[in-house]
């Protein structure tokens, strides 16, 4: 005879408790995995954007956008500067 006993009904409920515990763990694991995937996705999307922002401007429009100076310039002057490489160079030196 076994010396060790169990509470009454223990083996009748054990399979349900094991299945429930396994499911709960699977859900927790999936939640962690989803959070990890989301974090990786954010890195993949944001890092290129940050690098792009730091890259030097190669166009006049980009330069204006980056330095927030367009509101200071008259529309006509903007067009003139855009068509005049020399003026563009002078402007970038000032900035």
């Amino acid at each position: 005879m076994e010396a060790f006993r169990t509470p009454p009904g223990y083996f009748e409920t054990l399979p349900d408790r094991i299945v429930a515990r396994r499911r709960a763990r699977t859900v927790r694991t999936l939640s962690w995995a989803a959070a990890a995937v989301a974090a990786c996705g954010a890195v993949v999307v944001l890092v290129p954007q940050m690098l792009e922002r730091e890259r030097a401007c190669e166009t006049f429009a980009c330069l204006l956008d980056a330095t927030r100076t367009e509101e200071l310039l008259h529309d006509d002057l903007l067009e003139e500067l855009a068509e005049d490489p020399a003026a563009f160079e002078v402007l970038t030196e000032d900035l």
Binding site: M1, E2, A3, F4, R5, T6, P7
Partner: peptide, 10 residues
């Protein structure tokens, strides 16, 4: 409470 053994089993 869930151990039923005698002295030898214990």
């Amino acid at each position: 409470p869930y151990f039923d053994g005698d002295a030898a089993a214990r």
